[in-house]
Design a binder for these strands. Structure first.
Length: 462
RNA sequence: GGCUGGAUGGCAGAGUGGCUAUGCACCGGAUUGCAAAUCCGUUCACCCCGGUUCGACUCCGGGUCCAGCCUCCA
């Protein structure tokens, strides 16, 4: 039985999709005005893991991840760069796709862009105006009237009265109520605009997700995901808009992933304490980053540090070293797979699932090369579990020989290394250990570690 | 101030009313020409105060501290 922690219920709930065997999941994606950072990497990897596991459980999955390609920051950044909005957003969409692929994430079933769904947003806003859930302000903006939606605040556990009392809600002259949020921003010179019955302009942020999710998955769908910071106000507003516009219950399960932190502080653009995915994957193999992300539970905070990345790297080295030793040409061990599924069924408990993989790796190392036959089922189990998480699927040597891009110029290439290993073998054969140790030290200085085994010497950079 | 969530061994990170998490690091041993890797073994833990219980890190109450949200944010 698969259980998912539903943010709205604040509890784990048994997962039952609307249509048997099928899951519709919508995840709030990126606003494309800059490079993706490790926080974005977490959303990408976490929901990729969720989707892969749902598929493993036999569901056919409709995975929708939107792209916000029109908003204040995009307009501003394009103006700063003196480039068109399209060229800016296309550039960062390409980079995002590169990052996602590097991190081993499958492309979503669909990746709608806000600018392609403006018609649907206009229709939705029109309906909200007709039904009295929205109003036109004096300046031409259209706002959602929060007082018309009774359940407002239910997702994030907020009382509208408390919010109004809070000093931090910005007071805006044109709004009837400080909680009201913008659906449509009136046209301003030099900004992109669309014609609408209620005046030319561009959509507010929240309406795009209501429009795109409903377009792709229908008025009610199974899972809606995103970062924990989107719960309020973004997802709260989505619920209000969607349920008022369609009259249907919006989402059955809300999933929110925790933040990436640096020095116990949230990583964010505004704090400026972020590392881009590209920064990190130049220093660590992307699969190390994926393992690092999945080695803590998706709802927990994840502390970014070199020490933690190093630990993930050491772990993965051990993983590939084990796989390198033995063939996995048999079936996985049923009890192990059952335990794995049990862990994953429990709200995607990847740390526990990974611990199970480590146990199997231990068995492989223990049996070692002496008894391939005994080790093979463990290797097969590791491969099967790893396939579900999409970790450990590379050729071991591709991982173990990988070198960080930043260091590539300084390091020896594979041919140099093999040649030096051959020279060292000669020295060792003739008992010249001083020379052989000198070669080994030289390699180590270049980041290459040697391992002498019964069948010769192997090397790795990880 | 309001609302969420959290506090586990040197670090990371699961979990359970009584029984080894797991990985990294450390220490001792095996192995090795010496290493590395691997194996064996040892050490190290559940924020504080009460309560329930034969027994609580695990349940309940109170407290302290931390993070996030309340403004754009994955």
């Amino acid at each position: 039985m698969l259980t998912i922690y539903d943010s709205a219920a604040r509890a784990k709930r048994e997962f039952n999709p609307i249509r048997p065997g099928q899951v519709g999941i919508y995840v709030c994606g990126m606003t494309v005005y800059d490079r993706c950072h490790i926080g974005h990497a977490r959303v990408l990897v976490v929901f990729d893991m969720v989707v892969r596991y749902l598929k493993e459980r036999g569901f056919s999955v409709d995975y929708i991840r939107n792209i916000t390609d029109i908003d204040d920051k995009i307009i501003q950044r394009a103006a700063e760069n003196a480039e068109t909005i399209e060229s800016l957003t296309n550039r960062f969409i390409d980079l995002m796709h590169r990052d996602a692929e590097a991190l081993g994430c499958l492309p979503p079933s669909a990746e709608p862009r806000a600018t392609e769904s403006v018609e649907t947003m206009i229709e939705m806003i029109d309906t909200l105006l007709e039904r009295g859930n929205a109003y036109r302000a004096d300046n031409g903006d259209v706002y959602f009237d929060v007082s018309t939606f009774e359940r407002y605040g239910v997702l994030s556990g907020r009382d509208p009265e408390d919010l109004r009392a809070g000093a931090r809600v910005a007071v805006d002259e044109v709004k009837d109520d400080p909680l009201d949020f913008v659906l449509w921003k009136h046209a301003k010179p030099g900004e992109p605009q669309w014609d609408a019955p209620f005046g030319p302009g561009r959509p507010g942020w929240h309406i795009e997700c209501s429009a795109m999710s409903t377009e792709a998955l229908g008025t009610t769908f199974d899972i809606h995901g995103g970062g924990a910071d989107l719960m309020f106000p973004h997802h709260e507003n989505e619920i209000a808009q969607s349920e008022c516009a369609t009259g249907c219950h919006f989402v059955n399960y809300w999933m929110h992933n925790g933040f990436v932190r640096i020095d116990d502080e949230k990583m964010s653009k505004s704090l400026g304490n972020f590392f881009t995915i590209e920064d990190v994957t130049q220093r660590y193999h992307p699969e190390v980053v994926r393992l690092f992300i999945l080695s803590s539970h998706y709802r927990s905070p994840l502390n970014y540090s070199d020490q933690n990345l190093d630990a993930a790297q050491a772990s993965l080295s051990r993983w590939y070293s084990a796989l390198k030793k033995v063939p996995a040409n048999v079936e996985p061990i049923p009890e192990v797979m059952d335990a794995f599924h049990e862990a994953m069924d429990d709200d995607f408990n990847t740390p526990k699932a990974i611990a199970l993989i480590h146990e199997q790796l231990h068995h492989i190392h223990k049996v070692g090369e002496d008894d391939n036959q005994a080790a093979a089922p463990h290797a097969a189990s590791v491969n099967a579990m790893g396939a579900i998480l999409n970790i450990g699927q590379l050729d071991p040597d591709v991982f173990l020989h990988w070198s960080a891009e930043g260091e590539r110029e300084d390091t020896l290439d594979d041919a140099d290394i093999n040649q030096m290993i051959a020279q060292r073998a000669e020295a060792r054969a003739s008992g010249n250990f001083a020379e052989s140790d000198r070669i080994r030290d030289e390699l180590l200085e270049n980041g290459v570690t040697l391992e002498d085994g019964p069948h010769g010497t192997t090397w790795r950079r990880q």
